[in-house]
Amino acid sequence: MSTSIESLLREICFRVKVKGREVLKEFPITPAQFDLMQKLYFNGEQTMTDLSKILGIAKSTTTGLVSRLEIDGFVERKRREKDKRVITVKLTKKGEEVIDKVILKRIEFVEEALKDFDESSKEKLKELLSLFNESLKKYR
């Protein structure tokens, strides 16, 4: 049972992800850069070190991703006032707009797929997914 649930979740997540990333064709953003932008969008301003850890990539790779995104105006870097050695990165308004467009595309895709469901089924699906999500939080 767990195997089939994992497989279904993986397939669903992949389909939603691919549909949302269609928006990225409008921008000079790679999937790796987009992943970094998403982390900033949902977690707020981060240090370079924290971004590297969150993404599971080398700090030098993170620096390359951030540099390109900064040149294109999607993120900005700044040194901390208290400790000038620490550099933080945050999403710009332009970067937020990209993420917002991707999320909207995903929502539209899910809405389209849910047209085949009656309201009761939609509520039950939401309830079950919420329960499952809460259960997963125990195992961080």
Rank of each mutant, 00 (worst) to 15 (best):
Glu97Trp: 03
Ile87Lys: 08
Phe132Cys: 02
Leu65Gln: 00
Asp35Ser: 13
Glu111Lys: 12
Glu22Leu: 07
Thr3Val: 13
Lys105Leu: 01
Lys90Leu: 08
Phe27Cys: 01
Val75Tyr: 01
Tyr41Gln: 05
Asp83Trp: 06
Phe42Gly: 01
Pro28Glu: 15
Lys124Val: 13
Ile5Leu: 13
Lys94Ala: 07
Leu114Met: 12
Lys137Ile: 09
Tyr41His: 09
Lys17Trp: 11
Ala58Trp: 03
Arg80Asp: 14
Ile103Gln: 06
Asp100Arg: 11
Leu65Ile: 10
Leu136Val: 14
Tyr139Thr: 02
Lys59Val: 12
Phe109Lys: 05
Ser67Ala: 11
Lys101Glu: 10
Glu45Trp: 08
Met37Thr: 00
Glu112Ala: 08
Glu134Ala: 06
Ile54Leu: 09
Arg106Trp: 03
Ser67Thr: 10
Lys53Cys: 02
Leu129Ile: 10
Gln33Lys: 04
Lys78Met: 06
Leu69Asp: 02
Asp116Leu: 12
Thr61Phe: 00
Arg106Pro: 00
Val75Leu: 05
Lys17Asn: 11
Pro31Cys: 10
Val89Cys: 06
Leu24Thr: 03
Leu51His: 05
Gln33Trp: 05
Phe74Ser: 03
Phe109Glu: 12
Ile103Val: 15
Phe34Ser: 06
Leu91Lys: 03
Lys115Ser: 08
Leu91Val: 01
Glu22Ser: 06
Ser120Tyr: 06
Lys94Ile: 06
Val66Gly: 05
Leu125Ser: 10
Ser2Glu: 13
Arg21Gln: 15
Asp83Gly: 01
Arg77Trp: 02
Lys115Gly: 06
Glu112Cys: 00
Ser67Asp: 12
Met48Asn: 00
Leu91Met: 01
Leu91Ser: 04
Leu9Glu: 11
Glu81Cys: 02
Lys122Ala: 11
Cys13Arg: 12
Arg80Glu: 12
Gly20Lys: 11
Gln38Glu: 10
Glu76Arg: 14
Ile5Val: 14
Pro28Gln: 06
Arg21Val: 00
Ile54Trp: 00
Ala58Tyr: 11
Lys101Leu: 12
Gln46Cys: 14
Thr88Leu: 06
Phe27Ile: 04
Ser60Asn: 13
Thr47Ile: 04
Asn43Ala: 08
Tyr139Glu: 07
Phe74Met: 07
Leu128Asn: 07
Lys78Ser: 14
Ala113Met: 15
Gln38Thr: 12
Phe14Gly: 00
Glu6Trp: 07
Ile103Leu: 12
Gln38Ile: 14
Arg21Gly: 02
Val86His: 05
Ser120His: 12
Thr30His: 03
Leu104Asp: 13
Val86Thr: 09
Glu97Phe: 02
Thr92Ile: 08
Val110Pro: 03
Ile57Val: 15
Val102Tyr: 01
Phe14Met: 10
Glu81Lys: 12
Arg21Phe: 11
Lys126Ala: 13
Gln46Arg: 14
Leu114Asn: 09
Val18Ala: 12
Ser67Cys: 01
Ser4Asp: 12
Val102Ile: 10
Glu119Gly: 09
